[in-house]
């Protein structure tokens, strides 16, 4: 398991996903790739952030915001 997978697993273990978003444990992806493929906006948004911040490249606030907001705004429609 690589570092990105470990990190996303830490985030996806949060209770909020189960209590508020009504996700079941087996619905939670166990890798970054699986999370990026998720149709659950919050999971995919988290995955996009982990992917960006662990890319090893400099990601500015604006770039990250554009990436996440574009996805979420579109996903929300």
């Amino acid at each position: 398991m690589n570092k990105k997978d470990k990190i996303i697993q830490q985030f996806l273990a949060h209770d909020l996903l189960i209590t508020k978003y009504k996700l079941k444990k087996n619905q939670l992806p166990n890798s970054l790739k699986a999370a990026k493929d998720s149709e659950v906006p919050i999971i995919k948004a988290i995955a996009l952030m982990v992917d960006a911040l662990e890319s090893g490249q400099v990601v500015t606030d604006v770039t990250l915001r554009t990436l996440i907001n574009n996805y979420l705004n579109e996903a929300a429609i």
């Binding site: 985030f11 909020l16 919050i42 948004a45 988290i46 996440i68």
Partner: peptide, 10 residues
Amino acid sequence: DILTDIAKIF
């Protein structure tokens, strides 16, 4: 709402 929840999770 989602970003607020993500911030909380992080």
